[in-house]
């Protein structure tokens, strides 16, 4: 970084106003439609924000409008996944990241609870066997790490 910072480049700040976040507003309207559908039919919607041609300030503008809500959860599978309820109930922000903390995907999930937070049926298949094995080991006086 020392080599980079020694290059005498002065970043000139330009006030963009709302000019560079022209694509955030249509997404907010899409969220509104999805909410109406959720209320009317209970059907959820996922919006992949990576697929939207965002300008440099679009994402910040979108997240600022949506705000921060009550629930925050982190899933530790294939790197961290941060789930955050926004200030709008029913609108969730899901940030899929890899272990190096780089983003894989950023979704808006409009629904009661994001699917990835639920216990997965396929994992339930192993639930009983895992518990039984642990019970047997507990009766043998074993210690558990997690």
């Amino acid at each position: 970084m020392s080599a980079l910072s020694s290059i005498p480049v002065r970043v000139q700040s330009v006030s963009h106003g709302t000019a560079n976040c022209g694509n955030a507003v249509p997404i907010l309207h899409e969220v509104r439609h999805a909410l109406e559908r959720l209320i009317a039919t209970g059907e959820g919607t996922q919006i992949d924000l990576n697929a939207i041609p965002f300008g440099p300030e679009d994402e910040a503008h979108l997240l600022a409008v949506l705000g921060v809500g009550e629930v925050r959860a982190t899933i530790d599978a294939l790197g961290p996944t941060h789930v955050q309820e926004t200030a709008i109930p029913g609108v969730w922000l899901i940030d899929y990241r890899i272990t190096e903390d780089q983003r894989l995907a950023l979704h808006l999930d409009i629904g009661d609870i994001p699917e990835i937070l639920r216990t997965q049926r396929q994992d339930l298949d192993t639930a009983l066997t895992t518990l039984d094995a642990r019970l047997t080991r507990a009766q043998g006086g074993a210690q558990f790490e997690s």
């Binding site: 992949d48 990576n50 697929a51 899933i75 599978a77 294939l78 996944t81 899929y96 894989l104 995907a105 979704h107 699917e115 990835i116 997965q120 396929q122 994992d123």
Partner: peptide
């Protein structure tokens, strides 16, 4: 040892 959630996450990334 990839869990279902990890697999779903992988699918989400691939779909993206």
């Amino acid at each position: 040892g990839v869990s279902r959630r990890a697999f779903l996450k992988f699918c989400t990334a691939s779909a993206s």
